[in-house]
Amino acid sequence: MSDVIRPCDLSAASLPTPRGPISAAVVERLARPADAAAWQIAVGEPDPYGDDVQLALTVLYELHYRGFDGVDASWEWAPGPLGLRADLERLFLAQLRADVPVGDDTDATFDALYREPKDAWGVSHELAERGTWDQTREFFVHRSIYHLKEADPHAFAIPRLRGRAKAALVAVEFDEYGGGRADRMHSRLYADLLKAADLDERYLGYLDAVPAVTLATVNFMSLCGLHRAHMPMLVGMFTAAEITTAPSARRMASALERLGADPACVTFYTEHIEADAVHELVLRHDVVGDMIAADPRCASDIVFGAEAAEFLEGRLAHHLLDNWSKGSTTLRASLDEIAPVDQPVS
């Protein structure tokens, strides 16, 4: 292929430490100049939700976002990474389809998410009622993998929509990106939160620290975003997220106020309380409604996207709550063992 192309983003993260043979092969190959050869990497039958597969997918997806420090930007569309990614995506999506019920009633799906059961208990409930500051900071680390790129995966839907649905989704994304103000972008607000909590605010700063159960929640967004055929699934998960975010953000704000956290930590969540309540209505009626009116066949994919995202979030919540109940860290190493911030964000 051509000479090595270096991305202009000087704040790109370093390649992570591999977690198995597949991710090791990916990291090793990406350290070389890009070429047009197919990658002969035996995938076998690994755990689709396991560390090796999920880290490999994360690395391959990041080639379409900011890339990695020292990695040839030409790898983004090279046959090797694309072929392996397709193999891993088939494993991941097949497992999700086996685990998530099939349905096509979007109203029933979104109504169920909107009406939270009185006995519901999740991570935000735990942190609001009795969570510690250390547990809250661990939660911040998990969420950093997505929130530092907040709204980016969903932006892939824009060129694939049309008319009313496109205009409505763009309006929601405009809010996610701060309404034109860089300091109000949700990703920037989350970086401010991390800094205020004495955590690393760099993009993918905690990639080596988070487990596969966290990576899977973000990888599913990227999988749907990068495939035109899966755009309805992307819209489904985006809508589900906006429905569930406002009440959980309200509980997180309460938790942080109880813990006496820096106002910058609270601001990220209060920003989402009112905004996402409006976004939920826009996505349900103007985006989903318009899509189904144009093609009712997309309803089942919209429902699957929402249900699969909730399934993956449920796995993450179980991991967090189970480990906290045992007094264990939810990360691959405790916060005390994770190296402190050693450089500022560019």
Rank of each mutant, 00 (worst) to 15 (best):
V345S: 15
P344Q: 10
V26Q: 08
I338C: 06
A253N: 05
D152M: 12
A37L: 09
A306I: 02
L207Q: 09
D52I: 13
S23V: 00
A56V: 06
T132F: 07
P159V: 04
T239E: 02
V4G: 01
A24F: 05
A293I: 01
F220P: 00
E28T: 15
Q54R: 08
R66G: 14
V210L: 09
L226G: 05
R181M: 13
V4S: 04
S144W: 03
A34G: 06
R284G: 04
G327N: 09
L320K: 06
D119N: 13
R66H: 13
V213R: 05
G131S: 11
G20V: 10
G178R: 05
A151P: 01
G44C: 09
I292P: 01
L113N: 07
L169N: 15
A308H: 12
V266A: 04
A155K: 09
D111C: 02
Q343N: 03
A306Y: 01
G131F: 08
E307R: 14
A264D: 13
A317N: 12
W77K: 15
T58S: 14
V102S: 15
A253L: 07
S248H: 13
M1F: 10
L331M: 07
D3W: 03
E150T: 00
V43I: 11
R251K: 11
Y190C: 01
H227C: 06
Q135D: 10
Q40I: 07
P263H: 00
A25H: 03
V341D: 07
M291E: 03
P48C: 07
D262K: 02
E173M: 13
L204C: 06
D262R: 05
E280T: 12
M1C: 08
Y146D: 01
R284L: 12
A246V: 00
S144M: 05
A167N: 15
E129F: 11
R188W: 08
R162V: 09
C298L: 09
T245L: 10
Y65C: 10
E28N: 12
D87S: 14
F110A: 08
E280P: 06
A275T: 10
V266K: 05
V345H: 14
Y114W: 15
D152I: 14
A339L: 14
